[in-house]
Design a protein around this nucleic acid. Structure first.
Length: 661
RNA sequence: GCCGGAGUAGCUCAGCUGGUUAGAGCGUCGGAAUCAUAAUCCGCAGGUCGGGGGUUCAAGUCCCUCCUCCGGUACCA
């Protein structure tokens, strides 16, 4: 029986804060899986760490005029802390700047080198005499040979989107010193990926339980043919190449980073005082290794890293690579650079981590990119966590408190109601979901227990029974408390903090806290219950700022102040309600030769039809603002008093686009 | 450009190798109940499955084509 599990989650790059997209893609599914397996008492470790080398970090350091070490320290500790607050339960969160990692990846490199597996190729590269170094792609800036853009990067022109090599750039300059580099030859080592293609194809063909998107993606690569990849670079910041005459070269991050999983495992067992035990996980054939990643990482975990492990020999290969798609925010992709993202470190400050975990888990991008929104989080909290789960626990515990002296009422009849059989059958259903990496289904099936629990409470009507038969009523409440205990176990992988709270309320230790106890009767009658608390208070999200339709200005202004405001006539050529908004209409107005989108807060007073074709006054030079995610490029003037609102129109016919003063 | 993925009820998503009236959660609406955080329970309604063409007795599910979005990768044959 294979039951030793090695679970990895993609190493976050220590050049930025992790956001909700990362969580949804890799860390939360990994954590849920691991927590489930721990409940099943499987031997398991969960390793991760910061990926801390590479050009991007070096560039960040230069920009801020600090050392790379400062950059990686900042993000490593911040991310480690954010993960912890969100309850991501790594056994170790290491970092690739650690000595043990440098040693491990150098040994790995040497192993391949000694076997003569590495190919050396001479390449032309840009070299800066002034900087005394070869310039990596991103350290070069110049004129794009295709569109003529003068600030194209060495790897890509941001203007026209062409991918480039530094040698193609016209008039290249070093980003470090502005120096004009020269072309120089540099010898680099290559990993013979091409040679491993047959073995990889064979290996992946046998993986019948992999997600189809992952398999298809790999097959796509095989079709075009794998190519050898450079594994060394001319850089300072990184793991030094452990071979003579390679000064100024480091091991390319893509090669060295995944070895971080091995280094982290070694570190973990050194900490635990059993330094040799890492081999059980990496070298024993009955270990099952699972890599949790986002879809951007498939090639490295399903093709490159396995090929590296094959080349080295003596290591287990991944049993599965359950890659997730991406999580979008309000329909648009999460992006650090565009400021469109939710950082974990921020979200855990303002929300219960379990609410975040739940809302992300219930909408995990398992098969396709999925959409996250704050409204969704609110609705998941209020309508599901609070209404279904929280409410069940609360109504049960409050009932016991009020009618049974805050103690667990005793069972008397010796009968076990049917719902416990249902719970046990759900336990199997949920297990299957987890074992097939279907986390959303697992969660929904878990919540079905809570739904059934509420139904049981309703149907049993303890509030009526208590009037005629107190012992029977007590038994119903005992049932419900037992159900709560089962729920605490079943839901623990997803919302571990809440699970603990439920246990505390039940006055129960964790002696029966294991997966196989779901559906069992484990509570002792007459036990005092713990202090009850509302598990999920309602979340009221602040309403999005809606446009102030009328600016009431009490203070006097000068004519110059007034001239700053450019007013114009415009005709409404399109109008529609903004979904989920009471007050907003989305308008398209024509103002002379241009068209503008204006989000106006008049829906309570005008329907789309009523405003259509009216000639109105607008503020033309208002700074655009976003309302309910829609850009508003101006403001409609209207008169408002005592809750009555009328749009300002023009007396008689005049063309749109006319100045107003 | 090329490779892979996605476009299904108001919203967020399921639909394995083609087969009875296309499913779930949430929301909406109607009813019941009142122990509980106005929380629960029962019931109804909601989709010509991105557009167009084709294969088949039968297609959301296969093929072709077009459009949109996401990821990867590339001017190398």
């Amino acid at each position: 029986m294979k039951n030793r599990l090695l679970v990895t989650a993609a190493l976050p790059y220590a050049n930025g804060y992790i956001h909700l997209g990362h969580i949804a893609g890799a860390y939360l599914p990994a954590d849920i899986f691991v927590r489930f397996k721990r409940l099943c008492s499987e031997e398991i470790i969960f390793v991760c760490g910061s990926d801390e080398h590479g050009t991007a970090i070096e560039i960040s350091a230069m920009k801020e005029n600090v050392t790379p070490r400062e950059i990686i320290d900042r993000f490593h500790f911040a991310n480690k802390d954010a993960f912890a607050k969100l309850g991501i339960s790594f056994d170790i969160y290491s970092r690739t700047s650690n000595e043990i990692h440098h040693k491990t990846s150098q040994d790995f490199f040497l192993n391949l080198f000694d076997k003569n597996l590495l190919v050396q190729k001479t390449e032309k590269q840009l070299y800066s005499e002034k900087d005394k170094r070869f310039l990596a792609d991103r350290f070069v800036e110049g004129t794009c040979p295709i569109c003529g853009y003068e600030e194209a990067r060495g790897d890509q022109c941001e203007k026209c989107g062409s991918n480039l090599t530094p040698l193609e750039l016209k008039d290249p300059k070093s980003k470090i010193s502005g120096d004009t580099p020269v072309v120089k030859e540099s010898i680099n080592f290559f990993f013979p990926l091409e040679a491993f293609q047959p073995k990889l194809e064979e290996w992946i063909k046998g993986k019948t339980n992999w997600k189809p998107n992952v398999k298809n993606y790999c097959e796509g690569w095989f079709k075009t043919g794998l190519k050898d990849r450079a594994i060394t670079r001319d850089l300072d910041w990184g793991v030094k190449v452990p071979v003579k005459n390679t000064e100024g070269k480091v091991i390319y991050v893509w090669f060295e980073a995944p070895i971080g999983y091995i280094s982290a495992t070694k570190e973990l067992f050194i900490e635990r005082g059993t330094p040799e035990k890492w081999k059980d996980y990496w070298c024993e054939e009955d270990t099952r290794m699972v890599h949790f990643i986002g879809k951007d990482n498939i090639i490295f975990h399903a093709i490159v890293f396995p090929a590296m492990l094959m080349a080295h020999g003596g290591f287990v290969l991944a049993e599965n690579v359950p890659a997730n798609e991406f999580l979008n925010l309000d329909g648009a992709k999460l992006s650090k650079s565009k400021g469109h993202g939710i950082l974990v470190k921020d979200v855990v400050e303002s929300f219960n981590p379990d609410v975040v975990r739940y809302s992300v888990a219930s909408n995990m991008p398992e098969n396709k990119d999925s959409d996250f929104s704050w409204e969704d989080l609110q609705s998941k909290n209020n309508n599901e966590l609070a209404a279904i789960l929280g409410n069940f626990i609360n109504r049960t515990v409050v009932f016991a408190k009020n009618k049974f002296d805050n103690k667990i009422p005793a069972r008397v009849s010796g009968e076990v109601p049917e719902i416990f059989a249902y719970i046990k059958s759900q336990k199997k259903v949920i297990e299957d979901c987890y074992n097939n990496y279907k986390f959303r289904d697992a969660l929904n099936e878990t919540m079905n227990i809570a739904r059934a629990a509420n139904k049981y409470f309703n149907d049993s009507e303890p509030w009526k029974v208590i009037k005629t038969d107190e012992a029977k009523c007590g038994e119903i409440i005992n049932d419900c408390l037992e159900i709560a205990h089962s729920l605490a176990i079943a839901i623990a992988p997803v919302i571990p903090f809440t699970s603990e709270k439920i246990l505390k309320v039940l006055g129960k230790d964790n002696s029966d806290f294991s997966w196989d106890k779901i559906g069992d009767l484990v509570l002792k009658g007459d036990t005092e219950l713990g202090e009850n608390e509302i598990l999920f208070p309602q979340i009221e999200l602040a309403a999005p700022k809606e446009e102030e339709v009328v600016v009431v200005e009490e203070n006097l202004i000068t004519i110059d102040d007034f001239k700053k405001v450019k007013l114009a006539t415009a005709v409404v050529i399109h109008a529609e309600a903004v979904p989920k908004s009471k007050k907003l209409l989305k308008l398209k107005v024509k103002c002379g030769s241009k068209e503008k989108q204006i989000i106006a807060g008049i829906a309570e007073h005008y329907s789309a039809e009523q405003i259509l074709n009216k000639t109105v006054l607008i503020v033309d030079n208002l700074k655009p603002a976003k309302l309910m995610g829609l850009e508003s490029q101006g403001m409609l003037l209207a008169a408002k008093i005592d809750g009555k609102l009328k749009v300002i129109t023009v007396d008689g016919e005049i063309a749109d686009g006319a100045d107003v003063s």
